[in-house]
Simulated scan of single mutants.
Amino acid sequence: MNQVLKNKKQKIKMVVIGGGTGLPVLLTQLKKHDVDLTAIVTVADDGGSSGIIRNHVNIIPPGDIRNCLIALSDLPTIYKDIFQYRFDSKDDFFSGHAIGNLVITAIADMRGSVFEAVKLLSTMMAVNGKIYAAAEEPLTLIAEFVDGTVVRGESKIAKSRKTIDRVYVKPLDEEKEAHAAREVINSIEEADIILIGPGSLYTSILPNLMISDLGQAVLRAKAEVVYICNIMTQLGETENFSDADHVRVLHKHMQQKFINTVLVNTERVPDAVLNQQADEEYLLQVTHDFQALREEGCRVISADYLDMKNGGVYHDGSKVATEVMNLITNMPISYKYKP
C-alpha cells in the first residue's frame, strides 16, 4: 500500500448512494475495511410493507433504511434476525410487515423524525458507519415515457412496460421541491470517494440524484465518483441496455458527465438463469460497450463480480469492496487527503 496511506491517520471518507437489495450487500463488505463509511438511502419506495407504512403514517419508507442498519450493525445475528423478522400472519395489519420497519416508525414518532430514529438505532445496534435518508420526507418518483405519458409511484413504473425518457421526484405536496438534509450534503462534499449503486437505475439510484441539492453536491464534489453497473437488465426499466447506456442515462439526467470510473462485471451469467426470474425483475445480461464508456469520460474497471445464489444474479459484495479498496490505493493523493 502507498506509504502515504500507511502514515496517514485520517480514514478515507466513503459515501455510498443507492437503495434496494444491492446497497446492503455492498455495505456489509465495505464495513470490514478501515474507512469512514456513509450510506445515503432512497426514500421513494412505495411498495410492500414500506409503502403501507408510508401511506398510513406519512413517513419516509423504512425498508431500505432497515436493511442498511442490519448491514452495518455489529450486533449478534440473533438480534439482527429479530429486527428483520417479517410477520407471516394473515392478520390484515401485521401480515408482511418487518419488525424493524415498525420499530423505525415508532421511534420516529417518539423522536419527531426518521433522522433522530436512525441516529438512536445506530447507537443501539452498534452500527459501524452513518446512515442518512436522502430526504427527510417521503418522495414520489415520477416517470415520463417517450410516448409522453406520465406515471407516479416507484412500484408502478416498471409495470408500465414503456421506454422511460426521464424520472424526477416530488414531495407529497408537489408545489414544493425536494431537499436533502444538511448532513447528507456535508457527507458528499467531504467525501474522498462516492459509490453509486449497485441498484435499479431508474428506481433506486436516480431518485437520490434527482433531489436537486443532493445531485448538485455530487456534481461539485472533489471525490472520485464510481458507478457500479448492474449485471442484468430489468424489465420495464433498462431492457436492451449496455453498460454505456446506463451511464448515458445518468449523465443525461444530471446534464453533466460526472462519473469518473465504472465497475463492470464481465463474468458470463449461465444461460439457464437468463430470463428465468419468477418475479420478472431480470431479463438479460447487460452488454458491454467499453469504447462508448470511454467516450462518456469514464475509466473502466472490468472483472468477475458475479455471485449466483438462490437462483438469482447478484454482485459479489466482497469482490466489489476489494476492487473499491484497490481503487482507493491507486487514486491520486489529491483525492485521498485534501488539505
Results as ranks from 00 to 15, higher is better:
residue 55 N to D: 15
residue 53 I to S: 02
residue 25 V to A: 14
residue 203 T to V: 07
residue 165 D to N: 14
residue 300 V to G: 02
residue 53 I to L: 13
residue 224 E to L: 15
residue 317 G to I: 05
residue 62 P to R: 05
residue 315 H to A: 01
residue 12 I to C: 04
residue 274 L to W: 05
residue 294 R to Y: 06
residue 134 A to T: 11
residue 283 L to R: 12
residue 181 A to E: 11
residue 188 I to E: 06
residue 23 L to D: 02
residue 175 E to T: 15
residue 271 D to G: 08
residue 317 G to R: 05
residue 305 Y to F: 15
residue 273 V to L: 15
residue 211 I to K: 03
residue 127 V to F: 02
residue 78 I to L: 11
residue 224 E to G: 13
residue 192 D to Y: 08
residue 62 P to T: 10
residue 239 E to W: 08
residue 22 G to W: 01
residue 197 G to S: 04
residue 38 T to V: 10
residue 46 D to T: 07
residue 306 L to E: 06
residue 104 I to Y: 04
residue 185 I to T: 08
residue 37 L to M: 06
residue 56 H to P: 08
residue 130 K to T: 12
residue 154 E to G: 05
residue 252 K to Q: 13
residue 136 E to K: 10
residue 178 A to V: 06
residue 254 M to Y: 00
residue 217 A to N: 03
residue 165 D to Q: 14
residue 27 L to K: 03
residue 228 I to E: 03
residue 24 P to H: 09
residue 288 H to P: 07
residue 123 T to A: 11
residue 263 L to S: 01
residue 205 I to E: 03
residue 5 L to V: 10
residue 287 T to R: 07
residue 41 V to N: 00
residue 290 F to N: 01
residue 88 D to K: 14
residue 198 P to Y: 00
residue 49 S to K: 02
residue 267 E to L: 12
residue 66 R to I: 07
residue 339 P to Q: 10
residue 48 G to Y: 02
residue 297 G to K: 03
residue 166 R to V: 12
residue 2 N to E: 15
residue 287 T to M: 07
residue 38 T to H: 06
residue 43 V to E: 01
residue 186 N to M: 14
residue 149 T to Y: 08
residue 217 A to R: 06
residue 84 Q to C: 11
residue 66 R to G: 03
residue 150 V to Y: 09
residue 200 S to V: 07
residue 167 V to L: 05
residue 221 A to M: 08
residue 181 A to I: 13
residue 246 H to E: 00
residue 216 Q to Y: 12
residue 15 V to W: 03
residue 16 V to P: 06
residue 60 I to M: 11
